[in-house]
C-alpha cells in the first residue's frame, strides 16, 4: 500500500477522467476542479488552497468554448465524496443522491422508462 501523499498533475491525472459512483455506475467526467482556501474561503494566489469540488456539465462548455459561468451555480460533486483514484475517479456515494446527475435521471424518468421494456433486464432472460 502506498504511504504519504501521491503527487498528481490535475490535467494529467484528474481532468477528463471518468467519475464512477460507489457501485461503479458512471456519473460524469471530471470537467473542472474548484479550488478553495482554508475553511471554504475564496482561493488566493500563493495561499494554501485545496480541491473543493469536481465540476461537471456546464464546466465542460466553458472549458470548450471559453467564457465564464458563475462557479457557484455549476453542478458539482464535493471532493469529500471521492473515495479512490485509479484509471477513474471513484466516489464513496451513490449517484442516485447526486444532483449532478439530474439530466440522466430526467431522461430516464421522462423518456426511457416510458417506452415498453425500458426497465427490462437484458441479462435476465436466459
Amino acid at each position: 500500500m502506498t504511504h504519504g501523499p501521491r503527487i498528481v498533475d490535475a490535467r494529467l491525472h484528474l481532468l477528463s477522467r471518468q467519475v464512477l459512483d460507489v457501485d461503479g455506475e458512471p456519473v460524469s467526467t471530471v470537467d473542472d476542479l474548484e479550488l478553495r482556501g482554508p475553511d471554504g474561503s475564496e482561493a488566493r494566489a500563493g495561499q494554501e488552497a485545496h480541491v473543493a469540488a469536481i465540476l461537471v456539465g456546464p464546466a465542460l462548455v466553458t472549458r470548450l468554448f471559453g467564457g465564464r459561468a458563475p462557479t457557484s451555480r455549476m453542478p458539482r460533486i464535493a471532493w469529500d465524496d471521492v473515495g479512490h483514484l485509479g484509471t477513474a475517479v471513484e466516489l464513496a456515494v451513490s449517484s442516485d443522491g447526486l444532483d449532478a446527475d439530474w439530466v440522466e435521471h430526467w431522461v430516464r424518468e421522462r423518456l426511457v422508462e416510458r417506452i415498453p421494456g425500458g426497465r427490462h433486464d437484458p441479462e435476465g432472460d436466459r
Binding site: M1, G24, E25
Partner: peptide
C-alpha cells in the same frame, strides 16, 4: 498543469464498488 498532493489512506481491502462494475 496544476500539481496537487493527494492524501492517501491505507486500505487493505478494495472494498465494494471498485471498478466499472
Amino acid at each position: 498543469d496544476v500539481r496537487l498532493a493527494l492524501e492517501t489512506r491505507d486500505e487493505p481491502d478494495d472494498g465494494p464498488g471498485g471498478r466499472e462494475d
